[in-house]
Design a protein around this nucleic acid. Structure first.
Lengths: 242, 242
DNA sequence: CGGCAAGTTGAACCGCCTCAATGACGGTGG
DNA sequence: CCACCGTCATTGAGGCGGTTCAACTTGCCG
């Protein structure tokens, strides 16, 4: 009983409730999955491209990044998991992991064998549907990142990314108004947005000077949501909210 | 019985067999899923971003493209489904479709309600595993496209894309040596690779002049696989073969 | 044979990169 | 408490990769 009360206000429950309200048996099953949590420091590698680890992780606390490296050191960040996100499930079905994952802040994670998760999804339909929805939505976000990299300018792209981040955090119950803490460096942003960190700096300056959004001292403030959305061509549909 | 013999040499069976050899009951179940096929002409829209159609499609014959449009007409192509590919399953779990799909050649497709597919996956474990593997592999391909757009030059990117295409066709049993038919225009390639069609043209010329690969008259010939792989930094791992 | 889509090429431009130097901040140890 | 150091942020100058615009060619299908 105590456990459900604890879970109730947790980012993962916030996120899943957006798809379908979870009920008591769902929360109990979820609590079982999350029972074995593990604290790790920042910059800890948990999944390696090419590895055969068939676990997945619920990110309970902290931020991370999923990425791929090229042989000469270039890095592309796929996305930044935040609390409430499930990661590694899709790629656990492959014989070999297609990307790496590392934390970027201190974090708490629940490690779950992929087949245990599959079983839970089959046996607890409502929770299962919600988890599969969450996985699908996160794939839809990756597809939107593809559009971002391929067809938006640096300014649009950065604006779009920051808006998306705000919405994801809001959905996880981690932000109420237009401010939130954001531990991403300009280097990380560059590798996610396909830009050099120098150019990220210039773009952020522009966004600040246009009084749209400010990212400073790990704190992000959106001054003008509507203006930012217009600039980015942001259509929230792909986040499948409401 | 006749149906299984027909299926046996079909791209989808070639593709799935690469993960796990299908057996008779798998083929029977698959035949049921594929029973209602439909022929459509080229440039037919089948899925619309924002739509609520909860079907998925097996592409039996022909090529297509999954894409998203920006409001000003810019287009980003996500990938080009080829025969044997399953599409729309992931996004059928969302309340609203996150991307569009259209054919680019005349095509034959089997339309399957998403929940019927889910049921088949649950009831026929071996086939189910194979289908989920295929879906996961196709997601891994999208992630690699992200790397392509974010961190590879136009030359590397194009080379990488063509190599990937060859491998996918080979896995579907659609190519034996180093030649294959490829109905993609430079316009389509540009929208997939995040380049202008003019620049695609120049890149293809370079690849031709370096005697690596030729794409002409809808026919692609790879002259120097190893050279092309070196140029592209192509690591086949993400395709999860063998 | 006529018409239209697709491919090809040149010239000029610009968005973003690279290289390099400097500044701000936080943590750590003397 | 301050001096030091490493990481991250900021800014300028110059160069390159890829875009845009426009003209022309080629190939295909009726």
């Amino acid at each position: 009983m105590a456990r459900e009360l604890v879970l109730q206000d947790t980012p993962i429950v916030w996120k899943l409730n957006n798809f379908i309200p979870l009920q008591e048996d769902d929360l109990q099953e979820l609590a079982k999955l999350l029972s074995k949590t593990r604290e790790v420091s920042s910059h800890t590698d948990l999944l390696q491209e090419g590895g055969t680890n068939h676990h997945c992780y619920f990110l309970v606390e902290g931020w991370g990044c999923r990425y791929k490296l090229l042989s000469d050191g270039r890095r592309q960040i796929i996305d930044f998991p935040i609390p409430g996100d499930l990661l590694g499930y899709r790629s656990s079905l492959l014989r070999t992991r297609d990307h790496s994952f590392a934390t970027i802040t201190p974090a708490a994670l629940a490690e779950v064998p992929a087949n245990q998760l599959t079983q839970a999804i089959a046996e607890t339909p409502r929770l299962g549907q919600a988890l599969l929805w969450a996985v699908s939505r996160d794939e839809a976000i990756i597809v939107e990142h593809l559009v971002n990299l391929g067809r938006r300018t640096a300014l649009e792209r950065t604006a779009h990314f920051l808006l998306e981040l705000g919405e994801r955090l809001r959905l996880a119950g981690l932000v109420s108004d237009h401010n939130f803490s954001c531990p991403l460096t300009q280097d990380l942003l560059g590798d996610a947005l396909g830009l050099s960190s120098v150019h990220v700096n210039r773009v952020l300056r522009q966004l600040r000077e246009r009084e749209l959004v400010t990212l400073r001292h790990k704190e992000l403030v959106i001054h003008d949501t509507q203006g930012l959305r217009t600039l980015a061509g942001f259509d929230i549909g792909y986040l499948d909210q409401e």
